[in-house]
Design a protein around this nucleic acid. Structure first.
Lengths: 177, 177
DNA sequence: CAATATTACTTTGTGATCAAACTATTTGTC
DNA sequence: GACAAATAGTTTGATCACAAAGTAATATTG
């Protein structure tokens, strides 16, 4: 049912917007981000289909894969991935059903649950990542410069949103504060 | 429960990623896009809360607002907003309940349904947009150059995803095709 | 002009996310 | 040590998006 458009709908919306309101650039950028997210998500999900993984579940596995022991508390994973507790619970439920990780009690703190990569989990991550890399993480149209630029601009945004606080205790402090 | 991070989680993930796999820049950019979308969505939704609108429903109203007669077929709105038919149906359901638009039969084609802005709909769009513009559409940390850059880079992506086909029948055709 | 295909929208079911409420455990304080 | 506050994770209920199937109307064609 999708009819192809012969014009950029965001550019067109921008034209109308700018006749009445301010900050067209922000409007165009924000709308582009929304759309870009859909595109990336769809492409990565597609690349991950053979393992029945979604981007979100894949990120959980990669995070575990990167951890020293292959296991982390659920809460810590939520912090790192900027996800809600309930979302982590759901993702881990699903990954546990799939046999890619298992829950383990924390050795000392009985409140916390650890997610631990299974052998199967570890090995599919390597295969799945190969597919994700081949798909250029959904950004095949962009070269390294474009991607870096994107990352740098969006980091300003993430910083402003309080995602993280650059560690000011060591080195590069310039502004007199 | 959110613990503040003292480092950029994407930068950290990139460090690990680059030790094993290719295309770190794409990985960082893609992850940033995912996160940026969450941030923008949360901020715009927040700005729209007084009217009980979400970004998605707001976009539907703005699209109608921009149309000559304040009414459009549901299908056309889906094309413009890159949304699935069912999503449009849901959004229009909700906006109709809220009294911001109403469904109207198409005068000649009895298959198509038009969504038509109500007076209330028209007036709240103006107020709601004021709030959205004040929030800089969720991108307060970015200047006009950043936003333009973002837009231009992401347009490459959207073009590659087949979102639209630049009209090659008129003007600027350079490459010999 | 009847059969078939296409188009427009709705319905239903599923997956993902979040907020809020809940249980269990640990930490802090007097 | 007892009790309040904080922390970890789960459960429940809402919203939103999409896929697939269903209904209705229009267009095509033999």
């Amino acid at each position: 049912m999708r009819r192809p458009l012969t014009f950029d709908p965001i550019d067109e919306a921008g034209r109308q917007w700018s006749q009445r309101w301010d900050h067209v650039e922000a409007m165009r950028a924000a709308t582009s981000i929304m759309r870009a997210q859909q595109i990336v998500l769809a492409r990565v999900d597609e690349a991950l289909r053979p393992w029945e993984l979604t981007f979100a579940r894949y990120e959980v596995l990669v995070l575990l894969y990167f951890s020293r022991q292959g296991r982390l508390p659920l809460g810590k994973m939520g912090d790192r991935l900027m996800l809600h507790q309930a979302s982590i619970t759901n993702l881990v439920d699903r990954l546990e059903q799939q046999g890619y990780l298992r829950r383990r009690p924390h050795p000392t703190d009985r409140r916390t649950t650890l997610a631990e990569l299974t052998e199967q989990g570890r090995s599919i991550i390597e295969a799945a990542t190969k597919a994700v890399v081949e798909a250029r993480v959904g950004l095949s149209e962009l070269d390294a410069d474009d991607s870096d630029h994107l990352y740098r601009i969006l980091t300003k945004l993430r910083l402003g949103a309080g995602d993280f606080e650059p560690d000011r205790s060591r080195s590069d402090r310039h502004r007199g504060d």
